[in-house]
C-alpha cells in the first residue's frame, strides 16, 4: 500500500516464526550500540589479545619467523591448557568491561520510559523479552570470548596436527563451556541490575561493585581466618576455578602459611574451596538474577 493511501488496513502477509522474534531486539539494539565511537574503539581493542595469541601460535610453528625475531621456542608460552586459560582470563576481563558499557541501560531505559507494556502487549512473552535483551550481550561477548578462542584452538590444531587435536579436545570444550558460563553470568547480572536500577551510572557502579566489594570482603575473611573460603564471594575467582576445572589445571592446595599459637609456630596448608562449591555459587547467583528479572520485568507493577 502506498503511503498516500491513508486508510487503516490489516496486514495480510505471512508472519515471522514466533521462536525467532527475540532476535529482533539485538538487531535493533546494535544499531544504537555501534553508533558510539567509544564502544566501537573498545570492541576493536578486545580483538587485540586474540590476535596476539594467534601470532604466538604462528611463531611456535614457524622457525623462519623465530629466526627473524631472534627468539627460541622455549622463550614463548607453551601452547597448552595454561595458554588457553590465560586467554580466557584476559578476554574475560575485556568482556567484563564491554558488558559494563552495554549492559546497564538495556532494561533500565525501557523501565524508565514505561516501554515494557508496549513489548508485553504483543505476542511476545516476558521470557522472550529477557532472552532478547540477554542475546544483545551474549552475541557481543561471544564475539570476543569463545568464538576467537575456538578459532585459536583450531588454528593450533591445524598447525600441530591431528594428534594434538585429539589429545587436547577437552580444551575446546573448556573454552566453549567456560566462556558461556562467564558471559551468561555477566549478562544475567547486568540485566538484573539494569531492571532494578533506573539510572545508568548507578547501574554501572552497582555492577562494578558487585564484582569488587564481595571480593574484598572475601579477602578479609581469608586473611582473618587463615582460610580460602572467602573466594566463594569473589565472582571472578569462582569463574577462574571453574575454568581451571574444565581445563584440568585446578588444584585445591594453594600454599602454606606459618601460624604462631601458644608460642609455637605451626604450618597450615591452605585449600581453595572445592570445585563443586564454585559451580554451586555461580548457579545460585544466576538463579537469583533470574528471580530478580522475573519479579521486575512486568508490564505493570502491582502494589499490594
Amino acid at each position: 500500500m502506498a503511503v498516500y493511501e491513508h486508510t487503516y488496513k490489516q496486514f495480510e502477509g505471512e508472519l515471522t516464526p514466533a521462536w525467532s522474534r527475540f532476535l529482533i531486539i539485538p538487531r535493533h539494539a546494535y544499531r544504537s550500540v555501534f553508533q558510539s565511537k567509544l564502544f566501537t574503539a573498545f570492541f576493536v581493542l578486545c580483538m587485540v589479545y586474540p590476535l596476539v595469541a594467534a601470532i604466538l601460535i604462528y611463531l611456535h610453528h614457524n622457525t623462519q619467523a623465530l629466526g627473524i625475531f631472534q627468539l627460541e621456542v622455549k622463550q614463548l608460552l607453551p601452547i597448552d591448557a595454561s595458554f588457553f586459560q590465560i586467554y580466557m582470563v584476559v578476554q574475560g576481563q575485556f568482556s567484563f568491561y564491554l558488558n559494563l558499557l552495554v549492559g546497564p541501560p538495556l532494561i533500565s531505559r525501557d523501565v524508565s520510559n514505561n516501554a515494557l507494556p508496549l513489548y508485553l502487549a504483543r505476542p511476545f512473552s516476558q521470557s522472550e523479552y529477557v532472552m532478547g535483551k540477554m542475546s544483545v550481550l551474549l552475541i557481543l561477548l561471544s564475539l570476543i570470548t569463545w568464538i576467537p578462542g575456538l578459532l585459536l584452538f583450531f588454528f593450533q590444531a591445524y598447525l600441530e596436527g591431528a594428534g594434538w587435536f585429539t589429545s587436547n579436545l577437552h580444551i575446546a570444550g573448556a573454552i566453549l563451556i567456560g566462556s558461556w558460563i562467564w558471559i551468561i553470568l555477566l549478562a544475567l547480572l547486568s540485566l538484573a541490575i539494569s531492571a532494578w536500577v533506573k539510572w545508568r551510572l548507578a547501574a554501572s557502579a552497582a555492577l562494578f561493585g558487585l564484582f569488587f566489594i564481595p571480593a574484598i570482603f572475601g579477602e578479609m575473611i581469608n586473611q582473618l581466618f587463615m582460610t580460602r573460603i572467602g573466594k566463594l564471594f569473589n565472582l571472578t575467582a569462582l569463574s577462574n576455578a571453574v575454568w581451571a576445572g574444565l581445563l584440568g589445571t585446578f588444584t585445591r592446595e594453594v600454599g602454606t602459611v606459618r601460624v604462631r599459637s601458644g608460642g609455637r609456630f605451626s604450618t597450615v596448608t591452605l585449600y581453595d574451596p572445592p570445585l563443586w562449591s564454585s559451580w554451586m555459587m555461580l548457579g545460585l547467583v544466576c538463579i537469583a538474577c533470574l528471580l530478580l528479572l522475573y519479579k521486575k520485568v512486568r508490564a505493570y507493577e502491582v502494589v499490594k
Binding site: 544504537s32 531505559r109 520510559n113 514505561n114 516501554a115 507494556p117 508496549l118 502487549a121
Partner: peptide
C-alpha cells in the same frame, strides 16, 4: 490486539 497505553511509553534513543 493493538494497545495504546495510558501513560507516556516509548523506547528511548530511537
Amino acid at each position: 490486539i493493538g494497545y495504546m497505553p495510558e501513560r507516556d511509553a516509548f523506547i528511548a534513543k530511537m
